[in-house]
Computed example of a mutant assay.
Amino acid sequence: MSKHYLVIISYDIAHPRRLNRVAKVLETAGVRVQKSVFECGLTPDALIALRSRLRRLIHPGEDHILIMPICVRCRHHIGWQGKLPDISTAPYWIV
Rank of each mutant, 00 (worst) to 15 (best):
K24T: 09
M1N: 06
L19G: 02
S10Y: 06
L6H: 04
V37I: 07
R73S: 13
I87T: 15
E27I: 09
S88C: 10
N20K: 04
A29Y: 01
A46W: 03
V95P: 14
R56S: 10
K3D: 12
L42P: 11
P69N: 05
L66N: 03
P85Q: 02
T89P: 08
G61S: 07
S2R: 08
Y92D: 02
A49L: 15
R53V: 05
L26N: 07
S2P: 14
A29W: 01
A90G: 06
F38Q: 02
D63M: 00
P85A: 02
R18A: 01
H77V: 04
R21P: 09
W93R: 14
V37L: 09
T28I: 06
G82E: 05
T28K: 15
I9W: 02
F38W: 01
N20A: 07
I67Q: 04
R17V: 15
V95G: 14
L50V: 00
R21M: 14
T43A: 10
R18W: 04
G79M: 08
M1K: 05
I58F: 05
A14I: 00
V95N: 12
S2V: 09
Q34G: 06
L26S: 10
A23P: 04
G30W: 04
I70P: 03
E39C: 06
I70Y: 04
S88D: 15
R53M: 10
C74P: 10
T28A: 15
G79L: 08
G82T: 01
P44I: 08
Y11T: 01
T28S: 13
H77A: 14
S10Q: 07
H15I: 08
V37K: 10
Q34R: 14
R53P: 04
H64W: 11
A49G: 10
A23W: 05
L47K: 05
L66E: 04
P60E: 00
A23T: 02
T89V: 15
V37H: 08
L42I: 13
L42C: 12
H76M: 12
G30V: 00
D86M: 07
P85D: 02
I87D: 14
A90P: 07
R73E: 05
G41C: 02
H59P: 00
I94K: 13
V31Y: 01
G61D: 05
R17Q: 09
R53F: 07
T89K: 15
G82V: 00
Y5G: 01
R32N: 03
C71D: 02
G30T: 01
R56F: 06
A90K: 11
M1W: 06
L54C: 03
R55G: 09
K24R: 15
L19A: 06
Y92K: 02
M68I: 09
H77E: 13
R56N: 09
K3C: 09
M68G: 05
P44T: 09
V72N: 12
R75L: 14
I48P: 03
L50A: 01
C40A: 15
H15V: 08
R32M: 01
S36Q: 04
V72R: 15
H64S: 13
H59S: 03
H4E: 14
E27M: 13
I58H: 08
T28Q: 14
H64G: 08
V72E: 13
V37W: 05
V95L: 10
R51L: 06
Y11V: 02
P16V: 04
K35R: 13
A90R: 11
I94L: 14
P16M: 01
D63G: 00
L54S: 03
